[in-house]
Design a protein around this nucleic acid. Structure first.
Lengths: 138, 138
DNA sequence: CCTTACCTTTACGTAAACGTCAACTTCGAG
DNA sequence: CTCGAAGTTGACGTTTACGTAAAGGTAAGG
């Protein structure tokens, strides 16, 4: 019953996540990944794949590499000593606080932008333009 | 009845908007501002002040200097050229879309983090620790 | 006259997150 | 054997939005 864990080359994993091999090496330099080696070639495990998924998500969220690294360590610490759990709890809470602030920021920005869009569209309407802008031949 | 328009030195304006003089010079280099000169000193008019307000707002909204420059040129060009307003509206909408995606992502992350925090705290409780962790002297 | 505060220009420095190039090595296919 | 594709490690280039001296001008106040 031994299904061997799948492994990936740098190119495969890069393509799967639509990043470049260069990025994967960079993440490794920064300590976010540490794939096994076969000779000098990198061999990525299923866990590495999971970590990369988290990295990509973090990037989508606009976090820096350093922040993402903290995240990863946070998830890693999952099955560590009880003593360290306090630290994890503290980090998680502080992370949540920061995210809540970011959430508020984004919502504020959205509000401003929607107001701007509304203003502009009102102006457009007052010029007799009500439809979604078609492109006219110039 | 001729109240002269107020003018500002670089330092005044910078302080008013909580930016550095360096930033104002930079914005000028980038063509976002072009204050009058008295000798070599910059003299900012009321209009310049208005432009700076737009610049700061653009920054808050997450636009790049280059994008803000485009907007300023649009506002400048004609107060209401329909074609140009469409462009602004399009940009705003696209930014809104992107922010809405980001919002969803952040909310998702928050949910996960809260779950993690809850898990960790449950673990801590099961070890007889119920209070918020105080910082002990090391 | 001298200091102080504020202004000027020029120009190099910084941080993030890779891109890009060079200069190999390695491996399976033909 | 040879080729090309894909891998490796440096190391320097790029972009954005300024920071940070360096070196000096100018006007007010003591």
């Amino acid at each position: 019953m031994a299904g061997r864990e799948p492994t990936y080359s740098i190119g495969e994993l890069a393509e799967d996540f639509a990043v470049t091999p260069r990025s994967l090496r960079f993440y490794e330099d920064q300590g976010l990944l540490s794939p096994a080696r076969c000779g000098s070639s990198r061999i990525y495990s299923h866990r590495d794949r999971g970590r990369l998924a988290l990295i990509c998500r973090g990037k989508r969220l606009g976090f820096s590499i350093a922040e993402i690294k903290e995240f990863l360590e946070l998830y890693e610490a999952d099955d560590h000593q009880v003593e360290q759990m306090r630290y994890v709890a503290t980090r998680a809470r502080s992370r949540i606080d920061s995210l809540e602030r970011q959430l508020a920021d984004v919502q504020q920005t959205l509000a401003e932008l929607r107001a701007l869009a509304a203003t502009v569209e009102t102006h457009l309407q007052s010029h007799g333009v009500t439809e979604t802008p078609d492109r006219r031949s110039p």
